[in-house]
Design a protein around this nucleic acid. Structure first.
Length: 480
DNA sequence: TTTACGTTACT
DNA sequence: GTAACGTAA
């Protein structure tokens, strides 16, 4: 019997899902499919934290599909081989999916589409992930934007409002369901129970995404322009992982914000918030036009910068949150325990690794890739190159964040650092972001409570390492 | 989406 | 002594 395969990947939702909507309106039975093909995603297959999220998001999707008279068929192996096999098993005449924009997956999808069409199956691909399909916005001279602000102006001019497709009330089921793996067979969950902190922090899935968004729009959005800078506060939406897995779309978020946008200046926080989604958009745009940036600097002159490699033992101390710099350690421990880090703290931790420790930004990007629940190739690459100074950044200066000043400014009560670095509780507030100033001249017994491990001294001198890297920077050539 | 330093003004 | 500001990097 004829049917349509709807291939899910990073669009794990039912509402505003163009491929599913298309399948539904074909009038044919719809077979939702998830294909697990980690080897095709290499070298950027999901890390451990991402796999945890993926498991729970798939679980939520399966549940949601069951409520509309459907199922999720799970398979593992080469995507094309699995799709062809499913086509033969089900008599499907169409395969539909929403595009992924990672360069190596776009290639794969193109090959899959071509092979399916040669086999006589119709293929339809859609955009469900970003406002503008990467590659569609260019400067007047035809070159891609490399600076965020003009790119974002162009996006705003072109328009962000999108009609959101409805959630299907029910799907037409096939007369026979093809075999499916159990979700557990994908082996996405950790074997060691290190996911307590993740469980306590997140609710993967479409419902969880909307819950987050509504909580955010109730109050924090009003103060977002400033509130987003204070990592101790719930000032951000924390939607990054939900967006990465496609549990909610930028268009849906924009539509949910429309009433606030219409109110204008009273809710200026909303514009800053939408602008942050613009950075996500920009990241996809940059990755599309510069597909080698996960590995190479956007501006080639940085290829020779004397960064240390990932075998540097200092990398381990940074990963473990044992650098002796409170704000950096708090961030790295927040990442390890919750699978997420506040964006300002990401910039500070990344600056510390690439500037003060002079370790290659790729080592940091890889660690974030393995530990973030929101690990996204486009956003992660852009963020790391931006902080390392070799990527898309309009600032005409070499930026070195000072984690002491940043702490005093954005965590003035030390709430964030003591939350994740409890050893600092006994340090007076005045020294909480620079405990080495306090310990100097005082007895070691005052350093920490007996029950807590000792807090290490700073692994580098902030001032000296800053001056050193600024000297290195000066030796780089002038243009791009 | 920054920092550090010099100048100035004021205590 | 130090806060506030302008400016270079």
């Amino acid at each position: 019997m004829h049917s349509v395969l709807c291939w899910f990947s990073r669009d794990l939702r039912l509402a505003d899902h163009p491929a599913l909507y298309h399948a539904l309106h074909s009038g044919l039975p719809v077979i939702p499919v998830y294909l697990h093909a980690q080897h095709e995603e290499a070298p950027w297959a999901p890390g451990a934290a991402s796999r945890w999220w993926l498991h729970h998001s798939l679980s939520a999707l399966m549940h949601d599909l069951e409520r509309i008279n459907s199922r999720l068929v799970i398979r593992q192996g080469d995507s094309l081989a699995q799709l062809l096999s499913l086509v033969r098993e089900t008599g499907a005449v169409q395969v539909v999916w929403n595009r992924r924009y990672e360069p190596h997956l776009q290639q794969r999808d193109q090959q899959v589409a071509t092979a399916l069409q040669q086999y006589g199956v119709a293929v339809h691909q859609f955009n469900a992930t970003v406002w503008f399909a990467p590659g569609t916005l260019c400067k007047a001279d035809g070159e891609p934007y490399r600076v965020f602000t003009p790119f974002w102006k162009r996006c705003l001019q072109t328009g962000l409002a999108r009609p959101c497709l409805p959630r299907p009330a029910s799907l037409l089921a096939p007369s026979h369901w093809p075999d499916s793996l159990e979700l557990a067979a994908l082996d996405l969950l950790p074997r060691q129970p290190w996911d307590q902190g993740l469980k306590a922090s997140w609710t993967p899935g479409e419902a969880g995404a909307w819950h987050r968004l509504h909580d955010f729009l109730k109050e924090p959005v009003k103060h977002y322009a400033q509130g987003r800078d204070y990592p101790a506060q719930p000032g951000t939406a924390r939607l990054s992982a939900h967006l990465h897995f496609g549990e909610i779309s930028p268009g849906q978020i924009h539509a949910a914000c429309q009433p606030l946008l219409d109110q204008g200046a009273a809710h200026s926080g909303i514009e800053s918030f939408i602008r942050e989604l613009g950075w996500r958009e920009f990241a996809h745009h940059i990755l599309h036009h510069f597909p080698r940036t996960p590995q190479l600097p956007l501006y080639p002159k940085f290829a020779d910068f004397p960064w240390a490699d990932c075998d540097d033992p200092a990398l381990t101390r940074w990963q473990q949150g044992q650098t002796g710099i409170p704000l950096v350690d708090a961030g790295m421990r927040e990442l390890w325990h919750t699978g997420w880090m506040h964006n300002r703290v990401r910039m500070i931790c990344a600056s510390f690794l690439t500037k003060n420790l002079k370790i290659h930004w790729r080592c940091g990007a890889r660690w974030f890739w393995d530990t973030l629940v929101d690990a996204d190739l486009a956003s992660n690459t852009l963020g790391w190159q931006w902080t390392a100074g070799c990527g898309a950044d309009a600032a005409p200066f070499f930026r070195v964040f000072n984690p002491v000043l940043q702490g005093q400014r954005f965590d003035p009560k030390g709430e964030y650092v003591t939350r994740f670095v409890p050893e600092l509780r006994t340090i007076p507030l005045k020294y909480r972001h620079q405990p080495w100033q306090y310990t100097a001249g005082s007895s070691p017994a005052l350093l920490s409570e007996p029950a807590l491990p000792p807090y290490p001294p700073p692994m580098v001198d902030l001032r000296h390492s800053r001056e050193q890297v600024l000297r290195d920077w000066k030796t780089l050539g002038g243009d791009t």
